[in-house]
Computed example of a mutant assay.
Amino acid sequence: MPQMSPLWWLTLMLTFNLMIIMSMSMMYFSFSMIMNKNYKKMKKEMNWKW
């Protein structure tokens, strides 16, 4: 493997980390939105008569 500049490795690492963080956050937010929808639907169906 040829010698590469440290800046190149730094940018590679940073882009990789950013991609991982963004994908994780997108997955988390999509999952939480799905859970929220289900919860709202469930809450709407449970109309208690006090």
Rank of each mutant, 00 (worst) to 15 (best):
M1E: 11
M1S: 09
P2S: 10
P2Y: 03
P2C: 03
Q3V: 05
Q3G: 01
Q3C: 01
Q3F: 04
M4S: 10
S5H: 11
S5C: 03
S5M: 05
S5A: 12
P6D: 14
P6N: 13
L7A: 07
L7R: 07
W8Q: 12
W9A: 07
W9G: 06
W9D: 09
L10N: 05
L10H: 02
L10T: 13
L10Y: 05
T11Q: 03
T11L: 15
T11A: 09
T11S: 04
L12N: 04
L12M: 14
M13P: 02
M13C: 09
M13D: 01
L14Q: 05
L14H: 01
L14A: 15
T15M: 08
F16L: 15
N17I: 13
N17R: 02
N17W: 13
L18R: 03
L18S: 15
L18V: 14
M19H: 09
M19S: 15
I20A: 14
I20C: 14
I20G: 11
S23I: 14
S23Q: 08
M24G: 15
M24Y: 14
M24V: 15
M24F: 14
M24N: 12
S25W: 03
S25P: 00
M26G: 13
M26P: 01
M26S: 14
M27W: 12
M27S: 15
S30L: 11
F31T: 12
S32F: 05
M35V: 03
N36L: 12
K37N: 09
K37A: 07
N38H: 04
Y39H: 06
Y39R: 15
K40R: 13
K40S: 08
K40Q: 13
K40V: 02
K40Y: 07
M42N: 05
K43A: 13
K43H: 09
K44N: 09
K44D: 13
E45V: 01
E45T: 02
E45F: 00
M46K: 08
N47Y: 01
N47M: 08
N47F: 00
W48N: 08
K49D: 08
K49I: 02
K49H: 04
W50L: 09
